[in-house]
């Protein structure tokens, strides 16, 4: 692939995956500001090293690999400093009184899910984020996290077992996929 083509692909992938990059960084770092900085740092690094990119590989997992490494660097630095993590749920936007019941119920479910994910270890959270939420293939996740596919599968399996236990109530209350009703939509309004 010509360099110009690769640059075009890079731009397309970046804009298409920007939210996924941000969500993954935020999942790892648990901090909005640091997540945005990590995304920018990642893209800077990737752009500078585009000539080193193996053209036979896929750009998306390569970008996420740089992202996860960048986030790990941030975590390492953070270990050496006192840091107060950003918690999106403690921001005091108490508009619950104004929300319709269904939206309120979905919001509570959203917090429940978020809490369940946050209780997983960092490695498991990242696999859940990439494979389940961002719908990476096992291969792509393996490249992004620089681990064998078997590790992705085993982490995913353990994470699922834990999440099923944590969310058993929600899973029982919700109709199954054969009921004809869609799964909960946490984002009712866009």
């Amino acid at each position: 692939m010509a360099r110009a083509d690769l640059q075009d692909e890079f731009k397309a992938v970046v804009m298409g995956e920007l939210s996924a990059l941000y969500r993954t960084a935020r999942r790892i770092l648990q901090d909005h500001d640091e997540a945005e900085d990590a995304v920018q740092e990642t893209l800077d690094k990737a752009w500078r090293n585009l000539n080193r990119f193996d053209h036979g590989s896929r750009l998306k997992p390569w970008l996420f690999k740089i992202l996860t490494n960048t986030c790990l660097d941030v975590l390492r630095v953070r270990l050496r400093h006192t840091h107060v993590a950003f918690d999106a749920h403690d921001q005091g936007f108490d508009d619950n009184q104004r929300l319709p019941d269904e939206l309120q119920a979905n919001r509570e479910l959203g917090w429940q899910i978020e809490n369940a994910i946050s209780r997983l270890s960092s490695d498991y959270q990242t696999v859940v984020q990439l494979v389940i939420i961002e719908q990476f293939s096992y291969d792509e996740a393996a490249i992004a996290l620089d681990v064998p596919v078997g590790t992705i599968r085993s982490r995913l399996s353990r994470a699922r077992a834990s999440l099923v236990a944590e969310l058993s109530g929600a899973l029982e209350r919700r109709p199954g996929p054969q009921s004809g009703r869609p799964a909960a939509r946490l984002r009712l309004i866009k």
Binding site: L18, I132, P177
Partner: peptide, 18 residues
């Protein structure tokens, strides 16, 4: 159950945008 778990996680996790 697994499918529902996936969909719940996805619907929650993709709520945040850049």
């Amino acid at each position: 159950r697994l499918d529902l778990l996936n969909r719940l996680l996805r619907s929650s996790g993709r709520d945040v945008e850049a």
